[in-house]
Nucleic acid binder design. Structure first.
Lengths: 162, 162
DNA sequence: CTAGGATAGTTTGAGTACCAACAATTAACG
DNA sequence: CGTTAATTGTTGGTACTCAAACTATCCTAG
């Protein structure tokens, strides 16, 4: 049947068989695989906590505020890797849902000090359980032996690139 | 000065010093670091090819079509990890820019056979140069020794999660 | 004490993503 | 055949993203 004949050289039309796609240079690009893996993990987590109307980004915001009460929106943006303008509507929503409090700061009236409400803390605790379960699944795939090295590499990428 | 005193237990207000943010459970979550690294890599590449009005996603689409001429939009979506509905406007744009051709298929009149124009091929070749340079930078950060293991792990995540 | 520049947060605009619903077409099966 | 089911690509809805322009406030020189 000679389904895909010669894998080198320029591809020809009928060569494409859906299951055996050629990735070409993409196959070796870290960025490409990083994107696919991130999207897959994102979707899996989103499915898991769908009922809470929370996505990974919102959870990260909640967790970061919980860990750093009094944090400003700009600092939060840096920590979460998002532009400050992205956080405005997200925080509006979290405030509207009575999960987060915005408090004006006396010493600098431009900025807000963010913190969780009691309800926000409760929800965070609950979500953290799901997040842990999700991450245990990822641990399994990555392999506990490689996890710390894997995370170190990811951090190195984040830090070096900015 | 006791800047941040006790790192365990519930954080207190003045504890927040912007540079030394507490990540809490997030610190150990693969998904969180995956996201930050992906975004960093994405931005770095986007900056590099800004003049071409191309982002990583568009480049991947172009590269996948180049490697698999005659591919359908659905198959392309699967390969690029995107919903088919996302590709419609992206392909419209690429066709409008005379980089990609959509050809109707006689055997299945529902689907298109995608291929690059000569102009598309030229641009792809040029972009691939930049992509290689970008990835060499990533290689350096990851370390050539760990690269293949790192990519294997990313692929494992992508495959296992879907 | 006042003009200039930096910074915090918001708004707006363009781009991208998913999903669900849809029309056109093809395949499967009685 | 002919009805039903599956598939291809598009559209519409919602959500999220960045970047640039904007307002309000703060800081720093002179």
């Amino acid at each position: 049947m000679a389904k895909a004949a010669d894998r080198r050289g320029r591809p020809r039309e009928s060569d494409v068989a859906e299951e055996t796609l050629r990735l070409g240079p993409l196959a070796d690009f870290i960025g490409f695989h990083l994107r696919l893996a991130q999207e897959a993990s994102f979707q899996a987590f989103a499915r898991r906590v769908r009922d809470y109307k929370m996505r990974p980004g919102r959870f990260a915001v909640l967790a970061l505020i919980g860990e750093n009460p009094g944090i400003s929106q700009t600092a939060l943006g840096r920590a979460a890797g998002r532009d400050k303008s992205t956080l405005t509507p997200a925080l509006n929503d979290l405030v509207r849902r009575s999960l987060v409090k915005r408090r004006r700061v006396a010493s600098d009236r431009r900025s807000y000090a963010l913190s969780l409400t009691a309800k926000g803390e409760r929800l965070l605790d609950e979500l953290t359980l799901h997040a842990r379960a999700h991450d245990r699944l990822l641990d399994e795939i990555v392999g506990l032996k490689h996890k710390s090295e894997f995370i170190r590499t990811l951090r190195r990428l984040t830090m070096s690139l900015v």
